[in-house]
Every structure is written in structure tokens, then in C-alpha cells.
């Protein structure tokens, strides 16, 4: 599903403070995987996740999403790719404060042009899976951190993306909420068959995933 060939990424290239963030990355992620990019801070896991998510560019190499090289895409094409084929979960929940939980979950579906009824049906389905169906009319600021992160996951999964990229999703959650969130995401992966790739060094994530890809100094050391 995702094929990464010889990817290199530098920050501050050509300057004295140049950082070689990704070193000759070669990686394959199959459909339906529940995997983790793991390693110490600054090892390049978020940089790699952002490159896979077409949020960031690379200096050389290829990244294929179902045989399509996303490195060669224009800015607009990358925006469309993120909208239609990817879902994102960030460390801070980043919900839209003026929209209700239901509207936040259906946000991407509405951008994709789904009808009100299709969106409503799917929002209720996903909210039920993530146990936030009793909060659909609430505003995000009335929810706990764990509930807000579940809304963020629901938003990412509602539009049925090919892959969900989750960067430190449990970093702001306590142990109980972290375990609950990971259980729910694993359940989504199994029920919906959605590919989920995490970038994290949190033990709750490490314990939950089926595959761990270890990075050190921008290079994969174990996959």
C-alpha cells in the first residue's frame, strides 16, 4: 500500500546547522496494518510521518501510495490527496471550537461533498464505535481531553481514508484514556480494515500496535 524508496530529508540544507533528518529510508506498509514509528525524540519519526502524509516534502527518493508517487505531486494535488485518502490525528486534538462534535466528525466528509444524510449516518456510526454518541451536540470545549481525542479520531476515520496517520495521539492523555483510545483505534482497524500508522514513544501505543518500526538518527534500524 505504501512503498518508500531511498527517501532523504534535510533541514537547513547547505547551512552550518544542517540536519540529516531522514537517511535513505526504505519501507513498505501493507493495507490494514496497525504500525508504529518509534524512537527517541528527534529520531525523525514525525518527519517521516509528515512525508508519508504529504504534509512535507523530501529532498530525494520516492513515496508511493498505491503505486502513485506522492513526492511528485503539486501543492493542490497533495491537498486533495490528504483530503480524500488520508486521515490525521494530532497530539493536540485540534477540533474546530465553533462546531459541534457531530459537525467536527463530519467536517472532512462535508469537504468531500457528502450529503447531509450520508454524513449524519456515518457520524452516528463512528461516534457509537468511539463511545461519544451521547456528545454529538456538545461543543468541543465542554469535553474532557480523552473525549476530544476520540472526536479527533472519529473525524479522521469518518471519511474512510486509506490510511490514518496519528502523531503522538496519547501524549496529552492519562493512562486510562490512553488505553481506552488505543483499544478503540485497534478495534477500528479490525472492524473497518483501515491502515493506521502511529508516530509515538508512548508505552500504551507500543503495547497496542502489531508492528514497530524503529528509527535512530533519521534511519530505520528495525522494522
Amino acid at each position: 500500500m505504501i512503498q518508500i524508496d531511498n527517501v532523504q530529508k534535510y533541514f537547513y540544507k547547505g547551512e552550518e546547522r544542517e540536519v540529516h533528518a531522514l537517511r535513505d529510508i526504505n519501507l513498505t506498509i501493507e493495507k490494514g496494518e496497525f504500525s508504529l514509528l518509534n524512537g527517541p525524540s528527534g529520531c525523525g519519526k514525525t518527519t517521516l510521518l509528515n512525508a508519508i502524509g504529504a504534509l512535507d516534502t523530501v529532498d530525494s527518493g520516492k513515496i508511493y501510495l498505491e503505486n502513485r508517487d506522492i513526492v511528485a505531486l503539486s501543492e493542490n494535488e497533495r491537498t486533495n490527496l490528504r483530503l480524500n485518502e488520508m486521515g490525521f490525528v494530532f497530539q493536540s486534538y485540534n477540533l474546530v471550537p465553533v462546531l459541534s462534535v457531530a459537525e467536527n466528525i463530519g467536517f472532512i466528509m462535508k469537504l468531500q461533498g457528502f450529503s447531509d444524510s450520508e454524513t449524519k449516518e456515518r457520524v452516528e456510526e463512528v461516534a457509537s464505535m468511539l463511545e461519544i454518541d451521547n456528545k454529538l451536540d456538545s461543543l468541543p470545549n465542554t469535553l474532557s481531553g480523552g473525549q476530544q481525542q476520540r472526536v479527533a479520531v472519529a473525524r479522521a476515520v469518518a471519511a474512510k481514508p486509506k490510511i490514518i496517520l496519528a502523531d503522538e495521539p496519547t501524549a496529552n492523555l492519562d493512562s486510562k484514556n490512553s488505553t481506552a483510545l488505543m483499544n478503540m483505534m485497534r478495534s477500528l482497524n479490525e472492524k473497518e480494515g483501515v491502515t493506521i500508522l502511529f508516530a509515538s514513544h508512548d508505552e500504551y501505543v507500543i503495547e497496542s500496535v502489531r508492528r514497530i518500526i524503529k528509527l535512530e538518527d533519521g534511519a530505520i534500524v528495525e522494522s
Binding site: L55, N76, T79, R82, L83, F88, N94, V96, P97, L111
Partner: peptide
């Protein structure tokens, strides 16, 4: 600005 950045990240044109 964060909100707009996230909107751009998730694919809003």
C-alpha cells in the same frame, strides 16, 4: 492560525 493550519493539513483548500 493553528485552526487554519489544521484545516489545511486535513485537506481544506
Amino acid at each position: 492560525i493553528r485552526e487554519f493550519g489544521i484545516m489545511r493539513a486535513v485537506g481544506m483548500e
